[in-house]
Nucleic acid binder design. Structure first.
Lengths: 221, 221
DNA sequence: ATGCTTGCAAAAATCGATTTTGATCATCTC
DNA sequence: GAGATGATCAAAATCGATTTTTGCAAGCAT
């Protein structure tokens, strides 16, 4: 069991943990991030915590004001719409590029990613909500695989951040939209394999817009 | 002369300074960022330096690998093209939104911003290369003002980072492209005031693509 | 001579302590 | 009694020191 170099750094693994804790709502939106509290709960020193928080500030998951410490970025209906619009903009563009350039390797990747996602969607549909986090992980991997042949590392980087911001809003919703989403995922896979760019973009827009509507209808403060 | 709260934090002002130093090439692409060296040259402690570097890592201006420290992100022709494509994607979208929503206040802002930029362009054309940095500052403010009415803080935030990444590539070029750029700025202002979205997007694409070509033709390792 | 191991110095990552700042509460004045 | 002023405490920002890791070089073996 050899660890990769990054994992041996407390800072990096802490960063992954805290980022997930924010995205999946274990650190609630707007909550204060008291340095001493974090030091205890994560078991690292204040300096390491601060380095991590500064990275999250740069990405926009955490806000810091003056000498008043750190807070998890708040969520607002406007924020959801802004992030969703950005996700559509970036992902639709990347998807188009990816469908132009993708080879058979790429096709294999998206088929494999969809299969994993599909299995989780079945479990979720059967009522097994314990796999919620894995399900969203595979959701990410599927969308990521679709755009993975776009040829722009910068675009993939930006999309990753925006996707997670969007995901944070989705994780706040407790009710299930899996049936519709699962169908859209199938349609998306088919359109990608058929290299039908127009259909793919249409389904993607519908997929994301549907998630926004669903989140807004079930909004809770 | 009262300082705003953020300026009284060494971390924040250091961040601004280092970010500019990278964008304007005073910290050359690929160069090693030795912590002890930085501590001396910027006059703050290692911890503060590290907090700052971590923010720059999250934005992509600095790379950090394992236990081997920090480096300024390298520049490549592919990177330039990726960043330029992203700038076009984000800025064109924001510009369209801004032109739909902009009121008279917005018109006043873009006219004022263009005037400041125009004055610097005149100085540059007259051979005063000392104002190079101010010129680019006003260039940023003009483009920023154009999209300032887009209504999405997230979009403006993302665009700000991408713009600076693009700017870093432009600052490597020593020869002058001011005449053409100045004309495009005028056309952009006119199209925005006329609410001619198609023309504005066409000019913007041309403006950025022209910068890419110019940078690639004068590339230096 | 080449390749491998081992030891040393330099540098990064992490930590605990110090300094500075903001907030709260009590006290004083009008 | 209300508002202003000052003291006290908690928390954040910064710093210097410690621990850990790496890269290099010298020595040994083949």
């Amino acid at each position: 069991m050899d660890m990769t170099q990054q994992d041996s750094l407390k800072g990096s693994s802490l960063y992954d943990t805290m980022r997930r804790d924010i995205v999946f709502g274990r650190l609630p939106a707007g909550s204060k991030l008291a340095l001493n509290g974090l030091r205890e709960s994560y078991g690292v020193s204040i300096s390491t915590i601060r380095e991590c928080l500064n990275r999250l500030v740069a990405e926009g998951f955490v806000k810091s004001e003056g000498h008043r410490g750190f807070h998890v970025s708040p969520v607002t209906p406007e924020g959801l719409q802004e992030v969703a619009e950005l996700r559509i903009l970036l992902e639709a563009h990347a998807l188009k590029r990816s469908m132009e350039a993708g080879d058979t390797q790429w096709e294999a990747r998206i088929v494999a990613a969809h299969h994993k996602l599909h299995r989780m969607e079945q479990k979720m549909a059967a009522g097994d909500h314990a796999v919620r986090e894995t399900w969203k992980q595979y959701d990410w991997e599927f969308h990521q695989s679709l755009i993975s042949a776009c040829g722009s590392a910068e675009l993939l980087f930006l999309h990753g951040t925006v996707f997670d911001k969007y995901l944070r809003y989705q994780m706040r919703v407790l009710t299930f939209r899996g049936e519709t989403a699962a169908m859209e995922h199938r349609q998306l896979l088919k359109a990608a394999l058929d290299r039908d760019a127009d259909t793919a973009e249409r389904i993607l827009r519908q997929h994301i817009a549907g998630g926004v509507t669903h989140a807004l209808e079930n909004w809770q403060d």
